[in-house]
Computed example of a mutant assay.
Amino acid sequence: MSSGAPRPTIGAVVLTMNDRPTEFPRAMDSLLAQEGVDLDVVVVGNGCEPAQVPDRVRAVALPENVGIPEGRNIGADNVKGDYVFFFDNDAVLPATDALARLAAELDRDTHLSYVQPRIADPDTGVTLRRWVPRLRAGDATRPGTVTVMAEGVVMVRRSAFELAGGWPGHFFLFHEGIDLAWRLWNHGHTGLYKPDILVHHPATNPARHERFYRLNARNRVWLARRNLPAPLIPFNLATWTLITLWRFRERTALRASLAGFREGLRTDPGTRSPMSWRTVARLTAAGRPPIF
């Protein structure tokens, strides 16, 4: 990017529940230290009045916890910028040019709608499999086109984000990144994984409790019902069921997963907008058929 080129405009969205008093200030310091971009930042308090908010940052307090995807939608509505950067409140940007480099990728390719950096634990350097947005996640340092995203740290082109309808707010938690990515691809866009741009994030696993398994299962069903052509829905759900039976041997996990599966079938998944068969072919060619 030449010195005379306009600086990319980025709206950054951070959610908080005031439960990370040590991590949150570090996250905000690293975000506000970014160079080479025009940055507009909002902190959304999900069911709280945000605390520890820096002077340069706006705050939005929500009276109740509306869930992560809807909180991010509200945040995106409250920032300006050609690109929107969604940033977990316990992550850290170790380099001050991270946002400028992500934006440069979007500047270079108008068909590109989102870019994800590599997320790694700051102490061990480990990148968890769920942070690598492809099926073959063994080598976290391999870049390339991707069809899903790790939604906690990702930059999205605003025009594409709005065209796709934003995050599925009613999901509350889990699989909203796949839903958004599929809809972006269905509008002719692509995604990119850039592992040479690094973000630090503690490598912790989400709590495994009944609500986790229930929401995980419910949203997998909603994801298929909202986005897939009708003939592919049973294949997708059958694949998910087999994987669940293989992964979760503990009775509580299976019971909660099956309850979530039934809930997903019986309840409204939100607006149905099935992807075209051309999109199915493009996703398959990119390495991830939408039955997985």
Results as ranks from 00 to 15, higher is better:
L198F: 05
R7H: 08
P231N: 11
V13L: 04
V126H: 13
G169W: 00
P231L: 11
H170I: 00
T9L: 08
V199G: 02
V153P: 01
R247G: 00
T241L: 14
A238M: 15
M275N: 04
V132A: 04
E49H: 12
D121Q: 09
V92R: 09
F261I: 08
R56V: 04
A5N: 12
D38M: 13
P143H: 13
T145E: 14
P94I: 06
L283I: 06
R208D: 08
Y83L: 12
F261C: 05
L112C: 12
S3H: 12
D38Y: 06
D29N: 13
D107E: 15
R249G: 13
T190A: 11
R157F: 08
V60D: 04
V42R: 03
D77C: 12
S2P: 08
W277F: 14
V148R: 11
R272S: 10
F292S: 12
G191N: 04
Q116H: 09
P202M: 09
F174S: 05
T141E: 15
T279M: 05
V43C: 05
G165N: 01
L283R: 01
E151G: 10
P122D: 09
R20G: 01
E151C: 11
R208Y: 03
T241R: 15
I178S: 13
S273I: 10
Y83C: 02
P94Y: 09
P206K: 06
